[in-house]
Design a protein around this nucleic acid. Structure first.
Lengths: 231, 231
DNA sequence: CGCTCGGTTGATGCACATCAAAGGCTGTGG
DNA sequence: CCACAGCCTTTGATGTGCATCAACCGAGCG
């Protein structure tokens, strides 16, 4: 890991206000890994030797169903952990597949380091809990949308992604995201997602060029989420 | 809290192998509370002064949507925590409403005790993480059922409830559960749930008497969950 | 004895999934 | 440089699972 990487890592909320030598210990034996678009970091079912801390880019956490469908469980942003919760269980397998969306990097940290360094520092554990809390909250919000219309789900998913992976204005999504992926994350078919989104494009609510997605009329999107469907 | 209560609490996995005086400290200022069917423990929006540890019975964790619908986020069994994740946030409100299902009891523990005693004990924090991990796993499994048929969702929900709140044979659910509640937890309408379940009753797969629900043909239910719909 | 609550049943309609076909774009290999 | 395969997107036609609305019943309960 370069000095630059290290500084980057230190600025993440988990490590805020920790002494350099503490951070060194927490990262004992860890390796920085650079991922290209669609590279697989962890595959569901593999034995979990390390967990990961995202430092750049974005990853999707996917479950492959017996039926052959993909379900995107959630997205990981810089500062998020992947698979940290299974570190304290013996010889466990990754419960999901983690795939990079666009150029990304992560720090892979050995289970042993987690067991010896992370679990002995209350402050760190507390911070990890905070992150898990956010993830829980996010999933619960999605579940609360259970009976909403597909348009509401899609709008809400896009907005929450832009909140985490957007530009400074909060209007452009800085990560490649296909309609298939949106469908997989809200549990719908691609075609339905496309129909909804192209309608929005026609209405000038949304723009999608190259690999970027931009919301033009955030106010209208907000209305859709609130359930004021019709145009 | 009676001596009896105390012994009960000590046998919960969170406190396994802890010294009595440690447990005493962890429970500083806590109060045991007995709940009757449908009593409300916490109401969504109230300021969170305490979190709770379930010691007996069952509770449902509900969100009330602006539309007036209820969504059951999850169920809490003995040994589960309620609202522990928001304890480390300042002046936060409960994110859900917690309602007892049948006679239950909980231990209410002050935020202050959490902050001073719980967050300073790595072992305890680790155990809390374990519990949160189970909750996450449960929610994720539900999300993975996203595109499955309603019958699959209902069957799967019932089975997972019996695993946590069932008798020793794993066939009878020892807690009052209405069809409305099943509907609220899988995101469906009561009528649809009723149609599915009465069909099962006619086919001798299921029996529901008084407040109890019994699975007669677990093999058939398992098949339904696997997606082998037709009878 | 009217009340509410849980369960049940039927009729109707709609929001989606599914199936099918096609065009653009990218990368890959001959 | 062209042909081909794969991925992403799009559009249309068709079907269906489930919500919704509307009744009704029995049981417990004040």
């Amino acid at each position: 890991m370069t000095q630059n990487d290290f500084n980057n890592v230190c600025s993440l909320p988990v490590f805020a206000q920790l002494a350099k030598h503490d951070i060194d210990k927490l990262l004992l034996g860890s390796a920085s890994k650079t991922l290209r678009h669609r590279d697989v970091l962890y595959r569901m079912g593999e034995t979990a030797e390390t967990f990961a801390l995202v430092t750049k880019g974005a990853l999707k956490l996917v479950k492959l169903l017996p039926s052959g469908e993909n379900v995107i469980m959630s997205f990981a942003a810089p500062g998020d952990f992947i698979a940290i919760l299974i570190m304290s269980r013996q010889a466990n397998a990754y419960p999901i597949t983690a795939v990079a969306m666009g150029a990304s990097s992560v720090l892979q940290i050995p289970r042993q380091t987690y067991l010896s360094e992370w679990t002995t520092r209350p402050l760190v554990l507390e911070r990890v809990n905070q992150l898990i809390f956010s993830r829980m909250t996010e999933i619960q919000e999605q579940k609360a949308l259970g009976k909403a219309s597909l348009a509401q789900k899609v709008a809400s998913q896009i907005v929450s992604l832009i909140e985490r992976f957007g530009d400074e204005n909060g209007t452009i999504l800085l990560m490649p995201l296909t309609r298939q992926e949106i469908a997989d994350s809200v549990g719908a078919s691609v075609e339905s997602v496309i129909r909804i989104m192209s309608q929005w494009t026609q209405q000038g609510i949304l723009r999608t060029s190259e690999q970027h997605l931009e919301i033009i009329r955030m106010d209208l999107i907000a209305e859709i989420i609130r359930g004021a469907e019709k145009a």
